[in-house]
Each structure stands twice: as structure tokens, then as C-alpha cells.
Computed example of a mutant assay.
Amino acid sequence: MTESIKCNPLLLSNQLCFPLYASARKIVAAYHPFLKEIGLTYAQYVTMMVLWEEKSITMHDLGKRLYLDSGTLTPVLKKLEGMGYLTRSRKPEDERVVVVEITKEGIELREKAEKVPYAMGCLINRKGELFTPEEVTDLKKQLYRILHALE
């Protein structure tokens, strides 16, 4: 590769953001059939993951955990509430704060969702181990460094 090609900031092959973007799209698409079985989209799935962990969380904190703004998060929560998996309510002492709480049905959904990470792991590693556990840990750390840098 010539020096002028290596230094060209507009070559797709010189971009870090492009393989991240393309990988994210491919990963979300790969999740689709597994999540369809339990009736969730990827955005709904990661929202439920936080609720399975926290049980109750403010919408503000949920948005921060998921890197989503309220305009993106609200329709996800509305749909999950309509499905019976969560409730939304305002704090009596501060009406501006919306609290999201998991329901019994939402807790029960966790059992169905437990097979999703395993299914994705099998799919990603179907041609052999893609990453060692240590490499997975390092990759997550590096990706979170990017997320934190862009906050």
C-alpha cells in the first residue's frame, strides 16, 4: 500500500467506524431469528436485560445504560408495556421522573431469553472459536472506551 493510500482519510478501508457499523448491523440481524422466537426486537431485548438485572429503574438511568435518548426509548417501553412486560409510572415526589418496573410476565420471559446468548455464541463460533474469553473481555473494554469517549 502506498503512503498516499495509507494516509487517505476518506478510504473506506482506513475507517475504524465502518467495520464497527457493519459488524453491529450483522450482529443485530443474526439475533433476529432467536429474538423473534420470544417476540422481541433487539432494542426490546437489551431493555429487558437491564430490567432483569435492576427490576426497577428510572427512564433516565435506563437510557444512559442503553445509550438511547428518550425519543428512541419511549416507543420501545410503550411496546413492552403493551406486551405486559413492564410498567411505567411517575414518581409522586417528582412528576418529571418516570420509573420503569418489570412485571411478573417480564420476569417469566427471562427463562425463554436465557437460550439466546448460547444460540448466538454457537452461531458466531460455528466455524471454530472466534475469540478466546480473554479476547472477548479485551474487545468489550475497547468498545466501551469508544462509547465513553463519545459521551
Rank of each mutant, 00 (worst) to 15 (best):
V50N: 01
V136D: 10
G82Y: 02
L143D: 03
C7V: 01
L66P: 11
Y21C: 09
R25N: 14
K91W: 06
S23C: 00
E3S: 05
L86C: 14
M48W: 09
Q44L: 00
M120D: 12
I38P: 07
S70A: 06
K127S: 09
C7S: 14
V97Q: 00
Y67C: 09
K127V: 00
A24D: 15
M120S: 12
K140P: 00
G63P: 07
E54K: 15
F131Y: 14
V100E: 13
T47M: 14
E53Y: 05
Y85E: 01
H32R: 15
L86T: 13
I38Y: 09
V28F: 11
D94H: 10
Y118N: 03
G82E: 11
G121I: 05
L130Y: 08
E105W: 04
N14K: 10
G106W: 15
A43P: 01
P92C: 02
R126E: 05
S89V: 03
K36S: 08
L40M: 05
K127Y: 08
L10F: 09
L62G: 06
S56T: 06
P117A: 00
K36N: 06
S89H: 08
G84P: 12
E105T: 13
C7K: 12
E134G: 08
L62S: 03
Y85T: 04
L62H: 04
G106I: 11
L11R: 13
F34V: 01
T87R: 13
T72I: 07
S4D: 12
K78E: 15
T132F: 01
K112D: 11
F131S: 02
V46M: 13
L130H: 08
L130W: 03
M1F: 05
T72M: 11
G84L: 14
K91T: 14
A43H: 04
L35R: 02
R126Y: 05
G128N: 06
C7T: 10
K64I: 14
E53T: 06
N125I: 06
M48L: 13
G106V: 12
L11W: 04
K104S: 14
H148I: 03
Q142V: 04
T58F: 02
E105V: 10
G106S: 13
L51K: 02
L12Y: 04
L147I: 12
L139G: 10
V28S: 10
D61K: 09
P9K: 03
V98H: 07
L109Q: 08
